[in-house]
Nucleic acid binder design. Structure first.
Length: 212
DNA sequence: ATGTCGATTCCCT
DNA sequence: GGGAATCGACATA
C-alpha cells in the first residue's frame, strides 16, 4: 500500500502514552476522545497498530445497546468498567468495543474503523486468511469497518474482557493516547434498527479509512 | 425442530 | 443501494 495514506497521518505525532481511565467516564466524550488514539496489537514479536478514525457510542439505557437486555453470559464484560474490551460476534465477524463508565453501568464505544500505521503486511495476511474464497481485500477495505479491523488485528473472543488500558495486562491488545488532533464529524449510527435517529456516530472528517 | 434476527461483509446491479 | 451469505443465540412449537 504505497499511496499517501490520508490527511491526518501527516499531522504532528505525539509521544504515545497510556490512556487515563477517567477520560472514559462519559461514553459520548469517550467516543470523541478515542478518535485519533492508537490501537496496538502485539503478537509473536510482531506489532500491528492504527489510528481510530470512527466510533459509535452506546450509552446506558440505549435500546440499540447490547446492555439493554440486561447482563447475561455473553455481554458480561460490558459491565466490567472503563477500559475493558467487549468483543462480540455477528455473523462471521467480530466487533471491538471499549467499555466506558463505572462497573455495572453497561455502556461502551464501538470501534468502527482504523487507519493502519504499522504491520500492514500482517493485517493483509490476516484479512486474506479470513476471507478465503473471496477477492483479496485491497486499499481502504483493509480496516474500514468494525469486523474488518478485527480481522486485520486478529481480534476474537479471546480478547473479550481484557484490559485495553494496560499494555502489559492486556495480552497484547491495548490503546495509546492520541496521535493526532482530529476534526470530528458526526452522524446517526449505522446498521442498527432501534434508536436510528440518535446522533452518536463520530468520525474524523475527510479521513478515507472511515467506513462507507 | 423450526423460525427469526442481528452494532456485518461481500458482490452485483 | 439491495440482497445473499452465514452462524450462534434465543423464542416459540
Amino acid at each position: 500500500m504505497k499511496r499517501a495514506m490520508s490527511g491526518i497521518s501527516a499531522l504532528t505525532l505525539r509521544t504515545p502514552g497510556a490512556i487515563d481511565s477517567r477520560s472514559l467516564d462519559d461514553v459520548v466524550c469517550a467516543a470523541r476522545g478515542l478518535l485519533g488514539c492508537v490501537l496496538v496489537r502485539e503478537a509473536r514479536g510482531h506489532r500491528r497498530a492504527g489510528i481510530i478514525v470512527e466510533t459509535e457510542a452506546y450509552p446506558h439505557g440505549d435500546p440499540a445497546g447490547h446492555a439493554y437486555r440486561g447482563r447475561d453470559a455473553r455481554n458480561g464484560s460490558l459491565f466490567s468498567g472503563a477500559g475493558c474490551a467487549y468483543v462480540y460476534r455477528i455473523h462471521r465477524s467480530f466487533c471491538l468495543n471499549v467499555v466506558t463508565g463505572p462497573e455495572g453501568r453497561g455502556e461502551a464505544v464501538l470501534v468502527r474503523a482504523i487507519e493502519p500505521t504499522e504491520g500492514l503486511d500482517a493485517m493483509m495476511r490476516a484479512r486474506a486468511r479470513a476471507t478465503v474464497g473471496q477477492r483479496r481485500p485491497e486499499g481502504y477495505s483493509l480496516t474500514n469497518g468494525p469486523g474488518k479491523l478485527c480481522q486485520a488485528f486478529g481480534i476474537g473472543l479471546e480478547f473479550d474482557g481484557s484490559d485495553l488500558l494496560d499494555s502489559r495486562a492486556s495480552k497484547g491488545l491495548f490503546l495509546l493516547t492520541r496521535a493526532t488532533t482530529p476534526r470530528i464529524a458526526v452522524s446517526a449510527r449505522i446498521g442498527i434498527s432501534k434508536a436510528r435517529d440518535a446522533v452518536l456516530r463520530f468520525f474524523i472528517e475527510d479521513n478515507p479509512w472511515v467506513s462507507r
